[in-house]
Amino acid sequence: MIKAQGLGKTYMSGGLPLEVLKDVELTFESGSLSAVVGPSGSGKTTLLGLLAGLDAPSAGRVLLEDQDLTAMSEDEKARFRAENVGFVFQTFHLLASLTALENVLVPLELTGRAKKAADSARALLERVGLGGREGHYPAQLSGGERQRVALARAFANQPRILFADEPTGNLDHETGLGVAAMLEQMNRESGTTLVMVTHDLELAERAERVISLSGGRVVADRAGSGSNGASGFDGRRSDEGRS
């Protein structure tokens, strides 16, 4: 479970304070699938960064699985992420000097589990349809393939929480749908809490919950179509495997 309590973030811009997130109160239940939407500059990515401990809030706190993230040091937060959190980014963020398999193994390397988990990393690549491409470098993969490698990496350490920042933002519609479906399916299979930031309202609607931000405030928090198990990101029912 993720809890944001009175969360706020202020940046200094041109010598003046700029409040990009104000008094946000949110709770994400374990295993839930939530989408955060809003116009550019509404504070979506800032919220995601604060929830994941990638940035420090100016006000309030974040509880991840009952642990106060804001009270942790940078290294403690990093350790927490290595063991509990996965990420998917709009621009993939793969390490260009590592092969697909090595990229998937990075979170495991950081926790010293790479030796035991090499097979499961290969299985994950198989799972995302990239079996046989383990030795390819990011530059040798298409955008959709890179994002699938990123998906495999995100699930490599079996995270309890997954943050996705515009996971289909750099992909064409068709490829984006495929990646979204894969993300949703893997999430349901592993029972991970997924928080996804997106501009794509169609994609957001298929989440269980849709949170709208505007001017740094939560202006709407409602159920999405995914809440009744009516549809997944690929338009098919896919509630099997949910715990």
Binding site: E74, D75, F87, V106
Partner: peptide, 18 residues
């Protein structure tokens, strides 16, 4: 490029020392 990679490693859970 180095900063982006280092930030990614930090995001994925690497300690500063690593």
């Amino acid at each position: 490029a180095r900063e982006a990679e280092a930030a990614l490693l930090r995001t994925l859970g690497a300690a500063k020392g690593q």
